[in-house]
Design a protein around this nucleic acid. Sequence first.
DNA 1: GATGAATGAGGTTTCATTCAT
DNA 2: TATGAATGAAACCTCATTCAT
Lengths: 211, 211, 211, 211
Amino acid sequence: MATKNTPQRDAVATKARILDAATSEFAHKGYDGARVQSIALNAKVNINLIYHYFQDKENLFVAVMEAAYSIVRSHHGDLELRSLPPDEAMRRLIIATFRMAIEFPEIIGLLTAENMQLGRHVRGSSLISSLYDTLLDFIKDTLDRGSARGMFRGDVDPAQLFISINAEGYFYLSNRYTLGAILRRNLDSKENLAQRENFICDIIMGYLRPI
Amino acid sequence: MATKNTPQRDAVATKARILDAATSEFAHKGYDGARVQSIALNAKVNINLIYHYFQDKENLFVAVMEAAYSIVRSHHGDLELRSLPPDEAMRRLIIATFRMAIEFPEIIGLLTAENMQLGRHVRGSSLISSLYDTLLDFIKDTLDRGSARGMFRGDVDPAQLFISINAEGYFYLSNRYTLGAILRRNLDSKENLAQRENFICDIIMGYLRPI
Amino acid sequence: MATKNTPQRDAVATKARILDAATSEFAHKGYDGARVQSIALNAKVNINLIYHYFQDKENLFVAVMEAAYSIVRSHHGDLELRSLPPDEAMRRLIIATFRMAIEFPEIIGLLTAENMQLGRHVRGSSLISSLYDTLLDFIKDTLDRGSARGMFRGDVDPAQLFISINAEGYFYLSNRYTLGAILRRNLDSKENLAQRENFICDIIMGYLRPI
Amino acid sequence: MATKNTPQRDAVATKARILDAATSEFAHKGYDGARVQSIALNAKVNINLIYHYFQDKENLFVAVMEAAYSIVRSHHGDLELRSLPPDEAMRRLIIATFRMAIEFPEIIGLLTAENMQLGRHVRGSSLISSLYDTLLDFIKDTLDRGSARGMFRGDVDPAQLFISINAEGYFYLSNRYTLGAILRRNLDSKENLAQRENFICDIIMGYLRPI
DNA sequence: GATGAATGAGGTTTCATTCAT
DNA sequence: TATGAATGAAACCTCATTCAT
């Protein structure tokens, strides 16, 4: 009978299951609210396996963050935008940014957790900052290309724009419950998400119009 | 008659001290990370006084949130914008929104905590939604006045704009640590805060330009 | 009825009970073998009270050691030997040393625990070394007085003698189980203890005889 | 045929390595403080090998103790003292006893561990008591020979003397940290060890002088 | 023989909370 | 009003040990 079967005793799969469960737990509860036991339950592993593979809760959190950043990086990598005209490229970046937060919803909770801890983990990790360098370069290039062609205004700060592109979607999602109460609607609904996506494009592209 | 050292005044002051300490603690640590003991310490009261006045941690958190919303309301109430021309009114609203988050920095942590708890407390509290109704009305009116005068484009959704006005500043502040790592600057510095304030005005007002 | 009663809720008594139980536990099981839960049980207190009063296990151990040294000090202080003739004074010191280890049997286990931890706690604590200074002085004086009167030999090192006086009784008691197996007797019996006491006097005093 | 890298030799060597590491671990940490994992690490073997060869921690401890007693026995066996004059024989025994504890320093920690466990293992093991019978006989004979020749006093209890010969060195070494703090010197230094050896000879031989 | 995966028991500690004064 | 004593629940983590390969 086939070598290498038995879904149990598969270290790689088990580690992945733990990491998945931990990602969800930390994203939804924050670092302090997360329970190692609850992660074990969701990963269907004995709690001690978590300590076996990840030493302690702190370390597990770091592993989760690193995996998350790695997912973000691969998302960025998938974009093939440099050959597109600047307005189309920018529009696609805006949409991709928003959709990533929807398709990988844990990223918001994780970043929130990270910031609540004053960026304890991200601080000093050159890996993470460098991860965004290509993205920032791309924004700068696109702005240059766009203003050269008279498509964009010429006075845009790429860093500020980067923040805003993220802010518009992130805040909508991260604060959906208080916003939902204020606006008396369910921000998670398909229609509302689509509407927000459109608005984000409008506000950024509207701002970029030449003066 | 006043038996013994002015008990009434003290009660009020003590409660206020507890509330202040709790506001800071919940804002910085989140609900789960907050420690009742630590609140007692910072408020310089015996921990039991907290239970005496606020029953339990959950209740204390609710009291903190309500006090926070009340501060937000008073900020809004202070604005006297209806008599101003629409562009000036809008600009002032944008600035006031950003500055409130800087002057009352705990509000960000508190809203984050609230949303991490799925808005458990805000949900159903008509008090809070009504709190923003006048603000949303103001935005709608101003947009109408502005587009009537040809100052603003005519297709702006007031609710989306409200979200964006908040998003632009909130995200910058709430995610300052991860953003700071990515951009390699200290987002808290005076200059960077002023620069962001300008950019937020630019992006919103730039978008509102007539088509 | 009388103020200040109710044996429960008496902090001093409770702390003392915890300290007693901890002394016994650490003496019998060593630091690593000691169980905080077991201490709580024997002290008839909730385990958390131990943490309330002593922070953690390590700290509790330190408190136990300090209490033990304090008992030792008071034993030394009780001796009024300086007015006695040197041989009588020395004999009484020898007996007192042995009897203290019998009357406060935990001291042996505690010192063993301390030494197994490489004296982590005693190291640097000037309190402890100074505690023995008067005792060492007394031994030196007595040796001087004795040799001056021709009662003792003149070449005795007081520090070495101090070690030996303690060694003779301590080793007998600390290693009573292996020794008991080798010698096929119960070293704890009244007779055997008395016999040992006599022998210790004999060996020290026999050695001290003038050459 | 020798399938795969000399398995037999390895087994013996591996077991020996485990035993060595375990001896050190138990001696330094005591039974409860010892970690099987740490033993595996120091022996450079997989932890499961320890369970393979020794079943469990308790059993490993027993094996360590038996190996230790066997070393002690071989030390005794090496002594060829019966043909020497009694005073010289006695002096050599005293020195050999002290030096064994220095050359095989783990013996002290192991005996301490054994006694802390109330001699659980040594109890009933006739092997161990018999191990010392020849030694006790030798002491008795030597005392007899010595007093017959007028070299020693005639009233010495051999068992008590045996205890003292061991006590004088064992206590010095086992309690070196507390003693070191009290006396403010490093008892492990070459000079201090030599000085102690001399003193132990002096005190025993001094006591044995005829009355 | 040797190794990594997995588990169960239990230990220390934290923390919210109640009780008694 | 205010405070220290006391408690229960549960969290994190360690460690010996077994299982499967």
